[in-house]
């Protein structure tokens, strides 16, 4: 099954929302006052890029999207866990909010749950080609998607 069909359609939409909001937020933070919180704002940019790559690859765009999606969602999970823990242990590190501080508390903890669902979905849809798959006959080639 493709990652961008069925429930995956909704997952990509949620990722898209986060790509847009994290992108806009980080762009604004960097343009406005990068020096105020360089670490937090750099991480905001990283988070925005990760969300953007995850959105596009889960939507099936680009080269080897499934591999890219595994990587991006994996990095996202590590990021939210690392930044979440650090922001709780040492709040001084992050004078301004990022998407991932406090494990995404500012976004209803969606940033914490989203990568888990993303990894689960990639695992669930992993048999997208090969023997007896559900690939339609009109797409007989074994290109990765």
């Amino acid at each position: 099954m493709r990652t961008n069909q069925g429930p995956g359609r909704v997952l990509v939409a949620v990722y898209g929302v986060f790509a847009i909001s994290a992108g806009a937020r980080s762009g604004f933070q960097v343009a406005q006052s990068f020096d105020a919180a360089p670490l937090a704002y750099s991480l905001s940019v990283v988070a925005a890029v990760v969300y953007l790559i995850a959105t596009l690859s889960l939507a099936g765009l680009g080269q080897r999207p499934r591999l890219v999606a595994w990587t991006a969602v994996g990095v996202e999970l590590v990021g939210v866990l690392a930044v979440g823990s650090l922001s709780v242990v040492d709040p001084g590190l992050f004078p301004d909010e990022t998407v991932w501080s406090g494990f995404g508390v500012g976004y209803g903890f969606v940033p914490l749950v989203l990568p888990l669902i993303g990894l689960g979905w990639l695992w669930w849809t992993r048999r997208s080609y090969g023997t007896g798959g559900d690939r339609p006959a009109s797409h007989p080639r074994t290109e990765q998607d």
Partner: peptide
């Protein structure tokens, strides 16, 4: 899941 996207 089409309406699901709209809900998001």
């Amino acid at each position: 899941w089409g309406p699901g996207v709209l809900a998001v």
